[in-house]
Amino acid sequence: MSDNEDDHADSDTNLYDGGMDGLDSMGFGPLIPTENERSLMERVRLELKQELKQGYKEKIVDVREEILRKRRAGKLPGDTTSLLKAWWQSHSKWPYPTEEDKARLVRETGLQLKQINNWFINQRKRNWHINPSPSTVLKSKRKR
Rank of each mutant, 00 (worst) to 15 (best):
M1L: 14
M1I: 14
S2Y: 06
D3K: 11
E5G: 06
D6P: 00
H8C: 10
A9H: 02
D10M: 03
D17H: 08
D21H: 05
D21C: 07
S25H: 04
G29W: 07
G29V: 14
P30G: 04
E35P: 04
E35T: 12
E35V: 15
R38Y: 04
M41H: 07
E42A: 13
R43P: 01
L46V: 05
L48H: 13
Q50Y: 09
E51F: 12
L52S: 02
L52N: 04
L52R: 09
K53G: 00
Q54D: 08
E58Q: 06
I60D: 07
V63E: 08
V63D: 01
E66M: 12
L68P: 00
R69L: 14
R72N: 09
K75C: 03
K75Q: 09
K75Y: 09
L76R: 04
P77C: 05
T80Q: 11
K85T: 10
A86K: 15
W87T: 01
W87A: 01
S92H: 08
P95W: 05
P95T: 10
Y96L: 14
Y96N: 13
E99Y: 03
E100K: 11
E100G: 08
D101T: 01
E108D: 07
E108H: 04
E108R: 10
T109P: 02
L111C: 09
Q112K: 15
K114P: 01
K114N: 04
N117Y: 02
N117H: 04
N118E: 12
N118C: 07
W119Y: 14
N122R: 11
N122C: 08
R124N: 04
R124W: 02
R124M: 15
K125R: 15
H129N: 14
S135A: 10
V137N: 00
K139S: 10
R144E: 07
R144N: 12
